[in-house]
Design a protein around this nucleic acid. Structure first.
Length: 648
RNA sequence: GCCGACGUAGCUCAAAGGCAGAGCGACCGCCUUGUAAGCGGUAGGUUACGGGUUCGAGCCCCGUCGUCGGCUCCA
């Protein structure tokens, strides 16, 4: 892919956007779905403000949960303030997806034991039947009330100036300053809250973790301590949520990567650099083989490019101006400086420029599984999802303006087909439009491509959100996100226009009129980075890959040593059919072999004993635990073939 | 990068400043097994790395590297 690094390095949660967002087809979840974390985004704040308008039952329920969580945050803040009388400074404490947090400035670091103490005190407070009461105050009155609370004073200043809310975002309309009070605690707060602490079920909340967080999200400002908690209407709901967290942990690709022997990261090599083991390598190869075939059918040309290029190239492309901090230090080769590539685009552009291009040559679609290296700060590395070296399924499309709408349609459709082939059905998208100040090219030049992207989304009939002014400076883009089996959102594909590089490299084609014209250039990555995609795939399937992707499709399990010859013969015939099978001829009992195959999430377990040999069959057990009984080998092959072709 | 927690056998984890352990896995042997773990034995360690305090450090202190949870970043 191209200039746009964001999609490949973006967090998997939808974080708040600075620009305005418009939902074209509103989806049920507007908050970050990330477990335990995430943030209250501008969308849901607006939602809270607009609560007077008609709402569905579901929205109503959401609002009640927000109030409940917000109220629990206040109760927690009271408990913490009591723990550090006169010393605790409170910042903000909003509800978030699945819970709430509150930020504190405290004289010492909190420990896990502190959380238990705080939680216990919260239960006492909740049992006290305290009403939450709202009161409007003047700015000066508020300053008196919070004279010792420097963070609150800053918030009051922001509110009084009418400029911004507690998240530092612009406020609309008249600003009223309100405080909410319960028991011995009063907080500067817009609300809403529940009526009384009675509504907070003492068996339905739990404090989860404590973590550092910058005041107002600004790394030049003080680091506060943030306590995350969760609260629900009932103990059952809490239980269910905690179960979901546990389930997510079991699916963690880092854990499964180890358990299933898929990949590793070695301290000897370095952080964020992935070693693919044979099994993980097989899954990746199968995924890539499939994509290669699709690209070939899809009219792409395959290109290959080196891992380093001269400084001059990166000056020309502009990467050294605007991307240098993500690039590694140059290598000195015979007095010339070379850089490891953070992106593939300049190389593909050089291929384009290697000869004169005619309008008849277009569109050109150059595809490469190109490995790039980007410096990421140590704290952001995360398994396969955020790494320092990764392979993009990258392509650059060069086309004439008249071809552009069709090309967009085509690439979007192509992308959706591939994602669906991997079992991702729940796909939605984000269209980022021109930033009013930071943008290459004229506003007019953005119109046709932006419209083409939007129309392509309409035709593809997938829900999309318009992120106004959120595009990178060089062109509008579409990002696709998928939801996995647990409802978590992952960003994979990106399709980005580029008005910048064609200019910088003076790209041209000779038109029918014999004159030179500037082609459109589109960067696109579908699975994004193979590393991130594999991480997503592992978590989506919880390591139980569909048959076509399973590194080992079947394990043959002889019951006793005398069955080995037959089992090997069956294994050979299955291998001859192109199936990936292993024979477990350890001296363990059959039960142990089944258990091991089960834990390795092998789709088919083929048990062979005297009876099977007699019948010329294998006894088939599925990963689901289902026992299909004895089956002739030909029938098994036919069954597996069907399953493979269906990508089931 | 920042705040906090953590780093012990291949893996998961024990070990109040006083002999470094268990289970699983690996290896060897016995058993020859019928749908989620048979039995016995053996090997396996510079307790991440470097320094310090102490009669004595896995444990306390300092530094480095790494991992985890967040924040920031990923125009």
């Amino acid at each position: 892919m191209g200039n746009g690094s964001a999609p490949l390095t973006a967090d998997r949660d939808g974080r708040p956007k600075a620009g305005r967002s418009i939902w074209v087809e509103p989806r049920e979840r507007r908050l970050s779905p990330q477990k335990g974390g995430g943030r209250f985004d501008s969308e849901s704040k607006r939602f809270a403000r607009d609560r007077r308008c008609t709402m569905s039952k579901k929205q109503n329920h959401e609002e009640e949960l927000h109030a409940l969580r917000h109220s629990a945050a206040h109760v927690m803040a009271q408990a913490v303030m009591e723990m550090f009388p006169g010393e605790a400074k409170i910042a903000i404490g909003p509800p978030i997806e699945d819970g709430f947090y509150y930020d504190f400035d405290l004289p010492r670091a909190l420990t896990p034991e502190d959380l238990e103490t705080i939680e216990a005190r919260m239960r006492e407070i909740v049992a006290g039947h305290h009403a939450f009461t709202r009161r409007e105050v003047s700015a000066d009155e508020a300053r008196t009330m919070f004279a010792e609370q420097e963070y609150k004073l800053e918030l009051i200043d922001g509110l009084e100036a009418g400029g911004e809310d507690e998240y530092g975002e612009p406020l609309e309309g008249e600003v009223e300053i309100s405080v909410y009070e319960h028991d011995a605690f009063v907080d500067l707060c817009r609300g809403p809250h529940v009526g009384s602490t009675d509504e907070i079920n003492p068996a339905a909340f739990k404090l989860l973790s404590v973590a550092g967080a910058y005041w107002r999200g600004d790394e030049s400002r003080p680091m506060l301590q943030r306590i995350y908690g969760t609260v629900w209407e009932s103990a059952d709901d809490l239980e269910q949520y905690l179960w979901k967290l546990e389930e997510a942990q079991k699916r963690d690709h880092r854990r499964l990567g180890k358990e299933l022997d898929l990949f590793s990261v070695s301290d000897e090599i370095g952080s964020g650099l992935i070693l693919w083991h044979p099994k993980g390598g097989m899954v990746r190869k199968l995924a890539e083989d499939f994509c290669h075939a699709e690209h070939e059918k899809g009219g792409y040309d395959f290109v290959y490019s080196p891992h380093i290029g001269k400084a001059h190239l990166w000056q020309k492309s502009g990467h050294l101006d605007w991307y240098a901090e993500n690039m590694y230090a140059p290598l000195d080769i015979e007095g010339q400086q070379y850089y490891l590539k953070p992106m593939n685009c300049p190389f593909h552009i050089e291929i384009y420029k290697s000869r004169t291009r005619s309008y008849r040559d277009l569109p050109l679609r150059y595809a490469e599984w190109g490995t790039v290296y980007r410096y990421e700060r140590s704290g952001v590395l995360h398994g396969l999802l955020r790494v320092r070296g990764f392979t993009q399924d990258d392509a650059h499309l060069f086309c004439r303006p008249d071809q552009m709408p069709e090309e967009i349609d085509r690439v979007l459709q192509f992308s959706l087909n591939i994602l669906r082939a991997f079992g991702f059905e729940d796909i939605h998208s984000y269209l980022s439009t021109r930033h009013p100040e930071k943008a290459a090219g004229s506003p007019e030049s953005w119109e046709a491509p932006t419209e083409a992207l939007r129309e392509a989304l309409e035709r593809a009939e997938i829900p999309y959100q318009i992120d106004e002014g959120e595009a990178t400076f060089y062109g509008p883009k579409i990002d696709l996100k998928v939801k996995d089996a647990l409802g978590r959102e992952w960003q994979l594909s990106t399709i980005q226009f580029d008005f910048n590089l064609p200019e910088r490299f003076d790209l041209a084609y000779v038109g029918e009129d014999g004159k030179e014209h500037r082609p459109y250039m589109i960067h696109r990555a579908l699975l994004g980075s193979m590393e991130r995609f594999m991480g997503t795939l592992i978590e989506h399937h919880a390591g139980a890959f569909p048959l076509w992707l399973a590194p080992v499709q079947a394990v043959l399990i002889p019951i006793a040593d005398r069955h080995h010859d037959y089992v090997h013969a069956v294994a050979e015939s299955l291998k001859a059919e192109g199936l990936r099978v292993e024979v477990d001829e350890r001296s363990d009992r059959m039960n142990a072999k089944i258990r091991d195959a089960q834990m390795q999430k092998v789709p088919y377990m083929l048990v062979v004993g005297d009876r099977e040999i007699e019948a010329g069959a294998v006894a088939v057990r599925l990963r689901s635990g289902e026992d299909l009984g004895p089956m002739p080998v030909e029938d098994l092959v036919a069954r597996m073939r069907l399953e493979i072709e269906a990508h089931a």
